[in-house]
Design a binder for these strands. Sequence first.
DNA 1: AACCGATAGTTGAGACTTCAATCAAGCCCG
DNA 2: CGGGCTTGATTGAAGTCTCAACTATCGGTT
Lengths: 172, 172
Amino acid sequence: MAETTPRPAQAVGPADEPRWLTADEQVAWRSYLLGSARLAEALNRQLEEDAGISLSEYEILVRLSEAPLRTIRMSELAASLMHSRSRVTHTVTRMQKRGLVDRRTCLDDGRGVNCVMTEAGWQLLVRSAPGHVRAVRENLVDLLPAGQFAALGEAMGAVARGPARDASDVTG
Amino acid sequence: MAETTPRPAQAVGPADEPRWLTADEQVAWRSYLLGSARLAEALNRQLEEDAGISLSEYEILVRLSEAPLRTIRMSELAASLMHSRSRVTHTVTRMQKRGLVDRRTCLDDGRGVNCVMTEAGWQLLVRSAPGHVRAVRENLVDLLPAGQFAALGEAMGAVARGPARDASDVTG
DNA sequence: AACCGATAGTTGAGACTTCAATCAAGCCCG
DNA sequence: CGGGCTTGATTGAAGTCTCAACTATCGGTT
């Protein structure tokens, strides 16, 4: 077992010795990498085949469907999805060409742009939601006992919040 | 709360009524989506800045570093990463241009191609591993109590294995 | 030996994302 | 009012991934 160890540099200066992952942590981490890859793949494939949209486009439709007037500003859309502004711009442009969303100028802020879901977008969401939910169940929720799924949600919530940024961080 | 519900079609035919996610499941699922997006983003950024490679390239280097003769066949590489063959072909081509890996024809199978890590690839892995591990800790492992991280690993292992495919599945 | 379906890998086009540069509008301060 | 900084959004180029089509080899069959 010693020879093929993944740790490139076993002996490092004691001062800044990196804290390698333990064997158990390695296993968990690789499971995460494989599981998340597999899950993303499955969900994207299902949506693409059944509705002709990607998971990010679906997520945009969901956010819009929940918003008052089915309208959200571009930057809020980006923030709520943890996507870059540029990414949302491109994605919304493509969706707009397909008639799923529209752009409106933002009245109270000349810089802002509102993204509005069209009726066609709504219809597409209605049609694709059941299949998507089924895929989420088959590939995630129903694979785990309820408690374990809830725990996973908790954990990933902490990950989404990210490392606590205290004042000593060099943020600027 | 009723009006902005994300469920497009509340009333569906009772026969094939979709099993929507419960409110709790919704929260957990969205935490997953946000957390995984944030984590992938953080790890990719760190590797790109500090080592000039992406997470998938890093993973390829790790797999190679663990293999006998630091050599793996393309298709095994693809399988072990849950990536498509095509994706691995493209990625390896780029890495080869940068001198991180090399291709060798496979002696025992004329169709096969072996991917070999070069010394430069090994050196790059050695240099970048500490920073990457630190990022994994900061953005995932150290955010969770040890037991919770282990549980997450368990859960994602089940996800990686995927839905049990019994004989009644139409797989062919 | 010639065939045929399955497997390994590549290729190129199109779709998607990232990054840096740009533009426009808001905000603050003297 | 008139800078100058910050924020919101877009653009285009470069990089990456997916998908379908293609080539080549292997294995089993006759």
